[in-house]
Design a protein around this nucleic acid. Structure first.
Lengths: 358, 358
DNA sequence: ATCTCTTGTGCAATCGTTTGCATATTTTTG
DNA sequence: CAAAAATATGCAAACGATTGCACAAGAGAT
């Protein structure tokens, strides 16, 4: 069977006996009122009968709008992103937009190249989950008039709209939880400081800890180069190597926490019996790992959904430059089994253990 | 700053002093040889200087090719899919294709609607991970000449090309492993039989078990309605409720296995001490759950990558209808901690325990 | 020197829409 | 009832690329 040529405006115009422009107007809700309702009905019928589907390419060529938005993530394989992406798609699909996804693998150069490729395709807007705190390329894009929104992360530049989670509140709740359990010596594994989540969570830690009577010592903080498990392992090893006393480790995200727990275990230490470990994000599956992770739940799907809605607004009212919005969604503490009261003689135990093995 | 109009073929034509058709040919590798190399050089220079980027819409309108392929998955949020999708994108990007992703949530109706939407956008081809064994819509698409390939799953109809994993070998290795540990009474939680993975894994189980001296009793098999954790839980409960004797449960995929383990635990039974549980797929994170899952590793990224390559071939040689290919990738057994030798008095223990609580 | 071939370039149509403008028809109004 | 206003439709020009065809100029053959 041959691929039959698709019906065009012209086909339905001929079938009804009117001009193609009339059909075009009749089929467009915005201009439908210009046409006699009787004719509109006939056109609608004919178009249905012929199975008319508008040609996207022609539409785009004429209007310079593609009804496609680009979604830029570090790596779709990182399970924090799929729910966000899904949120974006769910929202955008309702408005007839398609999304094309690209992975940057964290690099700013590759990010630039990918965004370039999306721009070449003429995307109508961009949802960026891979953004760094400072990114000239994206600022330029925005000032040139491309609708852009960052999601989950934000830029320092308040000019670029964003939808994020309440990192400060998350950290506060977590530290409060740890303090309530009786922890005094808390280390932190901070994330990449060139990324807003890394920086804000760390800043919040440094600010809130003292309020709870926990004095943050520089010896108690390590900075992870990446937001992943192996980086978490390295950081925990570093902490153990330093020989500082601690009964809990506050990690900047779940993956760091997972790595940290592995490292502890390799040293013969148990979580939470010897040291409590906390995450951030509540990624899928962290409720099933060993031990189930105490973490901060962010509204992953909603973050994406709301960002897409905001972007949509931006794309519609291209004329009037809107004030950039920053939406901050609330978070929740979810207590599972990676946190427990500190062991009575915790600090010494840790210390001795470390000594034993170094 | 205003959004500057993008340079067109015409602009570079004028800048060089030639006709646009000459520029078009000079810029296209396929037709470049028609133009004097000196002029080609000039055109290349001018096009770079002006920052010329071809207009995708115009290209598509003229050629009816969009350089977009649709990727159809049940749900991007299911962590088996992201690596596959990534594989598809990595391969396609190299050839200048973009991918647009849609989620079907498992329903055939929604799948049809989504594919319809993709077709309306004029995608050049389709990678389908959500396919059911029988799906008339997709067969029609293919016979009408749309390049299609299914990935991870396949249709019964051998006409539709596919890239899958060696389910039979996976099951064989897993059963061999269990048999070697000493298990005799093995139950199976089979997946959706309208999907090739569900059916083939189950068929393989029924065929291979006897070869290993394990006699499959109908009482030992339950069918899951969905490939997810809650379905796995329900199935395990059903098994326990039946009061059959077993020391191991072979699950059709990892998520069912995870659910099964939860259900066991809720009944006060331990995996693997009381019963061994096995998965299939080696999803991300199943090495970190409690207990780390013994499963079959499939080459997720590669499955996607290879499928995309095959689809690309299909899209290039649209003229000659190629023989549909079915590529089957090898799998690996990965033994972790959810399997162990059966407890000495395993069957009775299970039985008594079940009785105790019912 | 004439003719044929080849090679390189230009011409113009085309893909399917949208939209400003002109025109024809109807309705309103004084 | 004529003129003005409103309404409904058609006309044609874009949008930016590709491509079959025509044509011009130079190369080679006789």
């Amino acid at each position: 069977m041959l691929k039959r040529r698709r019906a065009t405006l012209k086909d339905v115009a001929e079938s009804v006996g009117v001009h193609v422009s009339t059909v075009s107007r009749a089929l467009n809700p915005e201009t439908r009122h210009l046409i006699t309702s009787d004719i509109v009905r006939k056109i609608a019928a004919a178009s249905r009968a012929l199975g008319y589907i508008p040609n996207t390419a022609a539409y785009s060529l004429r209007t310079t709008r593609t009804k496609i938005v680009g979604v830029v993530v570090p790596d779709i394989t990182n399970s924090i992103f799929p729910p966000i992406i899904r949120g974006v798609e769910d929202a955008l699909m309702e408005h007839g937009y398609a999304t094309v996804l690209v992975n940057t693998d964290g690099g700013m150069e590759r990010e630039a190249a990918m965004i370039e490729a999306l721009a070449a395709r003429g995307v109508d807007g961009l949802v960026i989950a891979s953004v760094h705190r400072d990114d000239g390329r994206i600022r330029d894009l925005a000032t040139q008039g491309t609708p852009v929104i960052t999601v989950n992360r934000r830029m320092d530049d308040p000019t670029i709209p964003s939808v994020t989670s309440d990192e400060e509140d998350g950290v506060r709740r977590m530290l409060t939880h740890l303090a309530a359990l009786g922890h005094k010596n808390i280390c932190t594994i901070a994330g990449d400081q060139t990324i807003s989540t890394g920086q804000r969570r760390h800043d919040a830690f440094m600010q809130i800890a003292p309020e709870l009577g926990i004095e943050p010592d520089p010896a108690n903080v390590v900075f992870a180069s990446d937001f992943n498990e192996s980086s978490g392992e390295r950081c925990m090893e570093e902490l153990l190597a330093r020989g500082v006393e601690f009964t809990a480790v506050h990690c900047s995200n779940d993956r760091l926490a997972i790595g940290a727990i592995s490292a502890l275990r390799r040293r013969g230490l148990s979580c939470p019996a010897d040291v409590s470990v906390t995450g951030f994000n509540d990624m899928p599956m962290v409720d099933r790992i060993d031990p189930p992770l105490t973490t901060i739940r962010i509204q992953q799907h909603k973050v994406g959904y709301v960002a897409a809605e905001l972007l949509y607004e931006q794309m519609r009212e291209l004329s009037s430059r809107p004030v950039p919005q920053h939406i901050v969604l609330p978070v929740d503490l979810v207590v599972r089994s990676s946190t427990a009261p500190p062991p009575a003689i915790a600090s010494k135990t840790v210390r001795r253990t470390v000594k034993d093995r170094t």
